[in-house]
Design a protein around this nucleic acid. Sequence first.
DNA 1: ATAGGACTTAGAGCGGGCTCTAGCTCAAGC
DNA 2: GCTTGAGCTAGAGCCCGCTCTAAGTCCTAT
Lengths: 137, 137
Amino acid sequence: MAYGIGEVAARTGLSVHALRFYEREGLFVGPIVRDPGGRRVYSDGDIGWVELCARLRETGMPLEVIRKYADLVRDGVGNEPERLALLREHQERIESQMQALSVGLSMISYKVRVYEKRLAEGTAAALWSSSTSSSGD
Amino acid sequence: MAYGIGEVAARTGLSVHALRFYEREGLFVGPIVRDPGGRRVYSDGDIGWVELCARLRETGMPLEVIRKYADLVRDGVGNEPERLALLREHQERIESQMQALSVGLSMISYKVRVYEKRLAEGTAAALWSSSTSSSGD
DNA sequence: ATAGGACTTAGAGCGGGCTCTAGCTCAAGC
DNA sequence: GCTTGAGCTAGAGCCCGCTCTAAGTCCTAT
């Protein structure tokens, strides 16, 4: 199947601007085919690649690293160990990001519970009002 | 206890530049105390707040939102429902970030397994060489 | 008393990742 | 034939979050 840039944008969630930008930046493995009028025509394979890029970006891989990966794939068979290393590094980065998120999440969840409790008691607390300070939110 | 800016930077992982920047940006609840020479003196409470800010940033909260939260805390008692709402929204954002990370992670883990397998077979595959193409890495 | 090091300010600069603009071409529909 | 809409290029612009600079102050140790 063949798709126009707008269609690809709609499917992948990237903007058409971003798609052209990614191409300029060398994130694609091969050149994107053009129709006789010079417009980009994307294949299913291209869409798959764009989706991979989107996932890599979402997980915080810098464009420069994605480009490096694309370069390796483009160079073809023989550099699999390098590609593997690159992916494994990213795997680890994602894991530590998840770790950081979960630390942050539990801190926030704790605060949420505190506020919930405070508010639940709040109506009652209006009696002896103020002085429930300290804590340091 | 009282701490200088360098000490706070060392403890929280933020740079001294970032600490001053956060202050200018209004992320602190109260003014930071100064010594007679005009230098910042941080209390344990300030450090706690900086650490909260650091966690919020790490989990992707924009400075503007942290400022809004600081504003609410500064305004004192009465706006707890707003603070709670703000925290809950962020909780949800973190949860969807974790979701995105885990989607990305499983995509990458899958690829890692593919490459590992390919490499394990690789030595053998050198026999009938090439043609193991397709896939679209 | 002098050198070093930590601190101060206001403001400029930077890197990443888009995002938008201007001016153009093309294809389809009325 | 003309409008509308999608696409094209090269390059400028923008937002965020720092990060660094310049020029100066102050404390401490030798």
